[in-house]
Design a protein around this nucleic acid. Structure first.
Lengths: 361, 361
DNA sequence: CCACGGAATGATAGCGTTGTCATTCCGCGC
DNA sequence: GCGCGGAATGACAACGCTATCATTCCGTGG
């Protein structure tokens, strides 16, 4: 049972604190780190002036700037952004939530995001949510990351738990969802339609004369939507899927190779294999090579992502190109604009995609 | 004459104005976010009790905990770690500095680091320094990251600029350098000897009967030290390098393929190619396949890193295995121990390496 | 000469949390 | 009955910085 809180006579708060002279009973919590106040004292200016020299030097007289910077260099002062962020309500931190960075199609996007934000003096905290199929820790991560008070949030995908979505909404922070599209973004979305990719791939392969189309997919939600688009396209052409093999995300060469082997061992008669990633497709090429399956004459292979290596496999892999760097840059720019309170751009940006035909189709 | 009438509202104003009564001349800086004090008021306890419920619930009566947590859930309170970190001098942040995450051998290490730290309620801020050859921004990053007051720093490599090293030293923060060895770490080092790897690779290939050994290397400092070890080994066996091709980091399949093509076009007579990464080796395999060079009968290929795909290439790639996950986990554990002030473990940990023989050698 | 305005700088009061005692309550042993 | 110790809770003052005025100092035009 709950104890009664002791009622102590609250003494009225003094209007003004007595001169700070010495703490009566508290040990100082101070550390040995150089603070802005130290710099100010040495330079013979007020703390606020040092703050201005660091953050907005154009407001301070050039001589003062030089003088203060000399002291900063000499003392090795490093600003404390925890304190600065607390006071200014600007953490200069952007949170990025991605499923994974291992073997990942997202790293280029993150790289561009980071680079663009770095120019604007922002840093990125990366959160890896894991794939939903493995028990996503997205909710816990969203909480953890919001407690850092990021000035903006970047998140892969548009399907978040009710709770995550609510938290992001109530945080009153610019949010950009990427690598997908939706008509009802939390805030902004920059991506492309996975269904359209699937459909375009289906139309493309059927157009090239392939009729028995199998697939190798990761059990990732976006990948499965591409497959859905593919199946619908095939259906429109009066075709069905000539076998499929599902692999746990993330995508690896090994996974693709094993999945394709399984497909073959089940006796598939496919004349084309569509993969949910270039890594899978690369695995298919490897297994085909081992088994002496001629590509593309006996079997066409199509990847997704158009990663750097796609052009250099043997034979060169056809794939679906996504502007991965563009997504990162656009996301950074959109977030920065929102942070600065600039007029809002479009809520939804479709960056599209492009089928790159090489030697495997 | 810079008289400018405000055409647009210059600043977004506070959402709500607290009826704080005695505001003599200052506008309130309050926001609409729920604070610990709000929770305390609603729950009828003191702020410090709420703090304890969040951070050390074992100190608080179970009923009080339940009561406060109910209020937290209802109000959607999210702790402000900027404030918490400022007050407690614990940011619960670990900085990780890596050259890159693109096509990178480091991602598994980072993944393990992040996972292990996550368990202990720490988060990782990632800084990408770029490779030295591209004009490393390590110094700027070190400053930027230290201003976040991380509780620990993880950094790839042991050769830092004088300035970076000094800053890290004076920050009085646990530091672990990884992926390399040195006898004079900033604080701790967990890695392996690149020279030894090179030497072991040389001995291994010579032992297998190869005599004309060429190489494909990234112009990364650690890679070049492996090469140095290789050359020394060859010299001990009375051999020289049968050609080399240097490629800009980071390692990609394309880079390896082109480098090997260049080597061939220069008319190399190598019977083995040592690569500074599996990605390069994969590229060599691709080019060899195109040119009909039988592997390993006419040419042996050896990678480095033993990435996931190495076992699945055709033919399966021989490589040098590094315990990438182990380095990340060990680093996290060492840093956590140091943060908690536990007795210091060894300053230098050599995780070693292992040559994995597959089909290409 | 003087009000006026802009440039430069400063004083004050927080920002939201936690470290450091301090206090209250209660059970227990003598 | 009383002192003691531990459990539970609280008051207060930082932590290091910046937002928000306020002030000082000049040069200028009327």
């Amino acid at each position: 049972m709950r104890r009664k809180p002791p009622v102590t006579a609250p003494h009225p708060r003094p209007e003004r604190r007595a001169p700070r002279g010495r703490g009566r009973r508290r040990a100082s919590r101070s550390t040995n780190a150089v603070t802005l106040a130290d710099v100010a004292k040495i330079a013979g200016v007020s703390p606020i002036t040092v703050s201005r020299v660091v953050n907005r030097p154009e407001l301070v007289h050039a001589d003062t700037v030089a003088q203060v910077q000399r002291v900063i260099a000499r003392t090795g002062y490093v600003p404390n952004m925890l304190a600065g962020g607390l006071a200014s309500r600007r953490s200069r931190l952007v949170a990025a939530l991605v499923p994974t960075v291992v073997n990942s199609i997202f790293v280029d996007t993150i790289q561009s995001l980071t680079d663009t934000l770095w120019e604007a003096r922002y840093q990125v905290v990366l959160g890896m949510t894991g794939y939903a199929s493995h028990g996503s820790r997205e909710e816990a991560l969203v909480s953890a990351i919001l407690s850092r008070r990021p000035d903006a949030v970047f998140v892969v995908g548009v399907n978040h738990s009710r709770d995550s979505r609510r938290r992001l909404l109530t945080a009153h922070v610019p949010v950009v969802e990427v690598w997908d599209l939706t008509t009802s973004p939390i805030d902004m979305v920059i991506g492309f339609s996975h269904e359209q990719v699937g459909a375009a791939v289906g139309d493309y392969l059927v157009g090239k004369g392939y009729r028995r189309i199998a697939s190798v997919w990761a059990d990732d939600e976006r990948a499965l939507r591409r497959r859905k688009g593919l199946l619908e396209s095939l259906a429109r052409h009066g075709l069905g899927e000539a076998g499929a093999s599902l692999v746990p995300a993330p995508s690896t060469l090994r996974g693709g190779r094993q999945a394709f082997a399984a497909l073959l061992d089940r006796g598939t008669d496919a004349d084309a294999v569509v993969c949910s990633s270039d890594a899978f497709a690369h695995g298919v090429l490897a297994e085909a090579q081992v088994r002496g399956i001629a590509i593309p004459s006996r079997l066409a292979v199509l990847g997704f992502g158009d990663l750097e290596f796609a052009a250099e496999t043997v034979p060169a892999l056809s794939s679906v190109r996504i502007d991965r760097h563009g997504i990162g840059r656009l996301a950074a720019e959109a977030l920065l604009a929102r942070i600065e309170g600039k007029p809002a751009g479009p809520k939804v940006v479709d960056v599209g995609f492009q089928i790159i035909e090489r030697e495997t189709t």
